[in-house]
Design a protein around this nucleic acid. Structure first.
Length: 597
DNA sequence: TCTAAGATGATGTCCCAT
DNA sequence: ATGGGACATCATCTTAGA
């Protein structure tokens, strides 16, 4: 199915193959500029200027003088000068060596001019003190020169404290190991001391310290009580005769392995042989699921511990989610432009009406339903009775409802729920992504409330960009409105193939129309139900495309979320049990790819 | 038959006072 | 340690009206 302009596209629905109408222009796309490259030539596709993650004002014009390689790295935030230098030294073929060189330039940062060219948004830089392969020295510290004025010993103490170690433990370790000890040695020393203390504390007690358990399970050095690093704790009941269950809890704050532009030590993680790709996979669901759910999902997904991240660090709305994945976690970078992280910055017009006593800076989690008009009217009626500020009781009532329903101030005494297009902005989708195409207003709210926060997911997926310069073959389960696809596109990652599964017709239509509008030259294949993907069909798909590079999806949270008052019954629920289809299909792909490779 | 509005808590976590 | 209050949460069900 190749149209006259070289576009390849197919749609399968259920077991019936649906011919894609747009390939012959029947949906009024005559004025659309199709990419003239066919699939075979899209490996070195130059991403569109929209898709490239270029800093604002440093638009990445893909002119004749600037190669795709340069644009590619500029998209990561490196300056053109640095990139040219790196290419000159390493040759244009070896993108990995170029990236290494660019990171090295940054870590050296010898001249002011070089400092000027440090990417503002690169998340992970290397510590100047330590060798690059030291896991503890992966520190994102654009302003680490803050420590430069201190003597070496004090600097190490500060770094250790910054890592989250107690000051006493840090200085004791320096005393033990001597002033010449590396950060890694010091961290290990603290870790060992803490371990010993915990063992002492727990002698004769029925619980063993989580630290011990971490040590046993991961068999890798840990950043102990890091305030920043994601740490999952396991507890074990020694008295239990049956299978001891472990408990996963989130770190505070919920930042995952790393955040863009934060000083943060990367915790080394070790994943089991069975978990290692290909394919890479990425699974998402609500962080605040009933107890035991994440433990179960983790167990099925090859014992990888979830990375819990709150999207409030990426946009102006809270969104606490857990992600189980086997992606590399070093050298992540965010998509640009970096979205605003406060309500006033995202919606400046509301500032005029925002009362001083409403101190919200960010929205709560964007849900699938909105408040009733009766509530906003009741709030207005309450407020008009009083001067500003109203009595405490009224303030409390209004603030509670504003927080509960994410209301914004749109006039004197007037609050309103967020509009669908405002949700699109907050979640990182193109404007009008869910508009039209048969979507009702209610359906827009539902689909957006159920979707990925694109900036968050893109940050995690960013490491794939260098691994797959020719593009990715993606299996996208529970695609929804295409959060994964939008994230990859915004990263400038080419999608050679996307096999997408989505039960909702309007959502499938949205993804398909976005696929067209953004001029994707890859192939989109859509299925309706994950349960259609039986071993036979999966074998066919894997053989046809030579496997998948990424299996991505977030299964329904309906039976897990706290918003559900009726059927919050965990993974047994009719919707959330679809997690097991995610696992089944992923495992199938792994088996098939293992067999064919 | 469809859409939208309106009414409907429980389960956790965190914090602070005791 | 512990108890109580504050707070947040990718939703579902019933009903009214077009």
């Amino acid at each position: 199915m190749v149209n006259s302009k070289g576009y390849i596209g197919e749609i399968f629905a259920s077991n019936r193959e649906i011919r894609n109408d747009w390939t012959n222009g029947s949906e009024g796309n005559e004025d659309f500029e199709w990419d003239s490259d066919d699939e075979a030539t899209t490996g070195d596709v130059v991403p569109s200027s929209e898709s490239l993650a270029c800093p604002p004002g440093e638009g990445c014009e893909t002119g004749p003088s600037r190669s795709a390689m340069v644009c590619h790295f500029m998209g990561m935030g490196f300056s053109e000068d640095m990139i040219m230098k790196a290419i000159k030294e390493n040759g244009e073929e070896n993108s990995e060596a170029i990236l290494e060189a660019l990171l090295t330039y940054m870590s050296i940062g010898t001249s002011p001019s070089e400092y000027d060219s440090i990417p503002r948004d690169l998340s992970v830089l290397s510590n100047k003190d330590e060798a690059h392969d030291n896991p503890y020295d992966r520190v994102a510290s654009v302003d680490e020169e803050l420590f430069e004025d201190f003597p070496a010993e004090d600097r190490k103490l500060l770094i250790l404290v910054e890592m989250g170690f107690p000051t006493n433990d840090a200085s004791a370790a320096i005393a033990r190991c001597g002033p010449n000890a590396s950060i890694l040695e010091l961290a290990d020393s603290i870790h060992a001391a803490q371990l010993a203390n915990k063992l002492d504390d727990n002698l004769g007690v029925s619980t063993v310290s989580s630290l011990v358990e971490d040590e046993r399970q991961s068999n890798c050095p840990r950043g102990a009580e890091s305030r920043f690093a994601e740490v999952t704790r396991s507890k074990r009941r020694c008295t239990s005769t049956e299978d001891e269950d472990s408990v996963i809890s989130f770190s505070k704050p919920m930042v995952g392995f790393s955040l863009p532009n934060q000083r943060m030590y990367m915790v080394p993680r070790k994943i089991s042989e069975a978990a290692i790709g290909p394919p890479y996979f990425y699974y998402e669901n609500v962080a605040l699921a009933p107890k035991g759910v994440w433990e179960t999902m983790s167990r099925f997904l090859y014992d990888i511990k979830p990375e819990f991240v709150d999207s409030k660090y990426f946009c102006a709305a809270v969104r606490k989610r857990g992600y189980i994945h086997n992606l590399p976690i070093h050298n992540r970078f965010p998509v640009l432009p970096i979205p605003p992280r406060t309500i006033h910055e995202v919606f400046p017009a509301t500032k005029k009406w925002w009362p001083s006593w409403d101190l919200r800076k960010q929205f709560n989690c964007l849900l699938t339903c909105i408040s009733s008009s009766r509530l906003t009217e009741r709030i207005r009626r309450e407020l008009v009775q009083y001067d500003d500020p109203p009595p405490l009781q009224v303030r409390q009532f209004v603030l509670n409802e504003c927080r509960r329903w994410n209301l914004i101030w749109v006039g004197q005494h007037k609050v309103a729920p967020l509009e669908p297009d405002e949700l699109e902005i907050l979640l990182g989708y193109p404007r009008n992504h869910t508009r039209g195409g048969g979507m009702s207003r209610t359906e827009r709210y539902r689909s957006l409330g159920n979707s990925f926060q694109v900036d968050t997911v893109a940050y995690h997926l960013s490491t794939l960009k260098n691994l797959f310069p020719d593009g990715l073959k993606v299996l996208s389960l529970f695609s929804g409105i295409g959060g994964a696809e939008v994230a990859l596109h915004r990263l400038g990652v080419h999608m050679k193939v996307v096999v997408s599964v989505e039960i909702s017709k309007v959502n499938r239509d949205i993804l398909r129309s976005w696929w067209q509008e953004t001029g994707q030259s890859g192939m989109l294949i859509q299925f309706v139900d994950v349960q259609e993907l039986n071993p036979h069909k999966m074998e066919h798909l894997v053989n046809r495309f030579g496997g998948f590079d990424l299996v991505i999806g977030g299964s329904p949270c309906n039976n897990l979320t706290g918003s559900n008052r009726y059927t919050r019954i965990g993974l047994e629920g009719i919707h959330s049990s679809l997690f097991f289809d995610y696992w089944r299909i992923l495992d199938l792909v792994k088996c098939l790819m293992g067999r064919t490779s």
